[in-house]
């Protein structure tokens, strides 16, 4: 199949992405946006030294990001969107998050972060994670294949992974396709990879979101620099937007890696609002990408910076990093 995507004007995308950082945000709005960003967090730990204890701590942080929220902020803060871990730690998350969990379990799979393993091993990786209880699978594409121009192979791998996400009862784990944009060289490639990923996922579950299955495209593993940038995220959002305009189907977006400050998170949400808001794609003309269902941040240090800013907005006082539990 011939893959064709609109070309990207790199300079203007950079300019437009930068323009979203120049909005004047009032305090009340900032408070809302930060609370929203907190609920969109995929609290992530992807290190070789991850232990069950660390992951348990992360799960508790995701369920209750700030224990003293009612005391210090006067409100109960939302829980995070998900925890994101390696497959071997999914059972620990299942145990720590309990049965009636509000926080999803996302597991990286497919030989994360390189993806340079035989396909069968990568698919087994996915099946194991799903069987262990993962709600969401973060897969990596074969960047080598993509850069070699083997787009059909890339698409077929994504389809295979999507099929591997199917549980015994027929439902699917949400799939997030990591493009690793830091290795794709150009924004044209980012756009093409986004379009391929969206199309490939849709090939397997063409009924779209009706069955509760939500597909995501995700910028980065966090292991490669540069990770998520505003420009890359904008190009991917445009891909999602054009897919919605063409098919009426919703695809989620997850920038990951390098988003450390609350201010950056606000910039991203401004972008989501201005790029996706005019689509009025949600119920009552709302913006579904301004909910944790269709937009996530892959981050860990971001959590405490959001909490710092929320406390600062409420009390007028700056707090120290050690005032919060580690994420």
């Amino acid at each position: 199949m011939t893959w064709r995507s609109p070309t990207v004007d790199t300079v203007m995308v950079g300019e437009r992405a930068a323009s979203f950082t120049k909005r004047s945000i009032k305090n009340a709005t900032k408070r809302e946006l930060l609370t929203l960003a907190l609920s969109m967090l995929d609290l992530t730990t992807l290190e070789g030294k991850d232990s069950p204890e660390k992951v348990r701590g992360l799960c508790h942080k995701a369920m209750r990001p700030f224990e003293r929220d009612e005391q210090m902020l006067g409100v109960r803060l939302p829980s995070c969107g998900a925890v994101c871990v390696y497959p071997s730690l999914v059972p620990t998350c299942v145990e720590a998050l309990g049965t009636s969990r509000k926080v999803n379990i996302a597991s990286v799979a497919t030989g994360f972060p390189s993806g340079q393993y035989p396909l069968e091993i990568r698919l087994q990786d996915v099946r194991d994670a799903v069987n262990a209880g993962a709600d969401e699978i973060d897969m990596v594409i074969s960047r080598g294949q993509f850069l070699a121009g083997k787009f059909d192979e890339v698409a077929e791998e994504i389809r295979a992974v999507k099929r591997a996400c199917q549980r015994e009862d027929g439902s699917y784990a949400h799939l997030k396709v990591i493009l690793e944009t830091g290795e794709l060289e150009t924004l044209d490639n980012v756009r093409l990879a986004s379009d391929i990923a969206i199309q490939a996922m849709d090939d397997v579950t063409p009924s779209g979101t009706g069955d509760g299955n939500i597909d995501f495209i995700k910028t980065s593993t966090g292991k490669v620099q540069p990770a998520a940038t505003m420009a890359v995220t904008l190009v991917m959002l445009e891909s999602i937007r054009d897919w919605y305009l063409k098919t009426g189907k919703l695809v989620g977006m997850k920038p990951a890696g390098g988003i450390r400050s609350a201010k950056q998170a606000v910039h991203y949400l401004v972008m989501v609002h201005e790029v996706m808001g005019p689509l009025h794609a949600g119920p009552g003309g709302s913006n579904p990408w301004l909910t944790p269902h269709y937009f996530r941040f892959g981050a860990s240090t971001l959590c405490n910076d959001i909490l710092r800013q929320l406390v600062r907005l409420k009390t007028g006082k700056y707090v120290a990093g050690y005032d919060f539990s580690e994420a």
Binding site: G316, K317, Y318, V319, A320, G321, D323
Partner: peptide, 8 residues
């Protein structure tokens, strides 16, 4: 006024 309350 911002020195004393700043926890850092």
């Amino acid at each position: 006024p911002h020195l004393a309350p700043h926890r850092d």
